[in-house]
């Protein structure tokens, strides 16, 4: 049974059909890629799965349970979390406090803080404020915050945006590590096909709010629809 099942989810914003019936199944332990041109609906899909928006139609199932009407925080407590395309942090509060937040809220042991910091490689900057971080550091903090709630499934939106290729590879290392050590299922979303290709087992392509293809990169780019979506 898939960990996450998105069943025919639709979401309309004033004047835009952001999602036009998306169906997506992700298996335990998978690292899934999600690509698509700008405005395809990738971020909307993630925020809808997280519960920032209610879907207008369809339903979302997590580990066999319909979570479509749950609050964000209840979804987080069920083991779902995500990083968002614009980093969410409070400039006046230290990096340590950001990582502590999820641990405190959920009553996890304080030892988690250092474990997470080491996993993402922020242990040297714990008492700094987040706005001193580089683009890579900011991504690491986003991932650390998501990990602080001990998720079993995380979605990483715009995972490599603003990073150089080498920095992207560093994020990929982190993804591989958490997928392995924490048995995490991961959904990686980005424009950078070369990087997504390196980390994802299977990749889904969406365009204008619908899934147009799914498979390995080799399969995808022999598919004319995908090529059109990216060229046109």
């Amino acid at each position: 049974m898939p960990v996450l099942e998105v069943r025919d989810v639709g979401k309309v914003f004033p004047g835009v059909i952001a999602l036009g019936g998306v169906t997506l199944n992700i298996e335990q332990g998978e690292v899934r890629g999600l690509i698509g041109p700008n405005g395809a609906g990738k971020s909307t899909l993630i925020t809808t799965i997280m519960g920032v928006h209610r879907p207008d139609s369809g339903s979302i199932w997590f580990r066999g349970e319909d979570i479509s009407r749950m609050h964000i925080w209840d979804r987080v407590r069920k083991g779902l979390n995500a990083t968002h395309q614009t980093a969410l942090y409070v400039p006046e509060l230290s990096i340590r406090r950001h990582i502590e937040l999820g641990i405190m809220v959920n009553g996890f042991p304080a030892t988690d803080v250092m474990l997470i910091a080491e996993t993402v490689g922020l242990e040297g900057e714990m008492d700094e404020n987040p706005d001193v971080l580089s683009a890579l550091g900011a991504k690491k903090l986003e991932i650390a915050k998501a990990l602080s709630t001990r998720p079993s499934f995380i979605m990483l939106d715009e995972c490599f945006a603003g990073l150089s290729f080498e920095e992207g590879m560093e994020v990929i290392e982190i993804i591989r590590k958490i997928a392995e050590e924490r048995q995490l299922t991961v959904l990686v979303v980005d424009h950078n096909l070369a990087l997504v290709e390196r980390v994802a087992h299977v990749t889904t392509v969406i365009d204008r709010g619908v899934v147009i293809a799914e498979g390995t990169f080799e399969e995808l780019f022999s598919n004319q629809d995908v090529v059109d979506a990216y060229m046109g």
Binding site: V76, L88, L101, T149
Partner: peptide, 8 residues
């Protein structure tokens, strides 16, 4: 930020 940390 509190919501995504798992609390209302």
């Amino acid at each position: 930020i509190v919501r995504t940390a798992g609390a209302d």
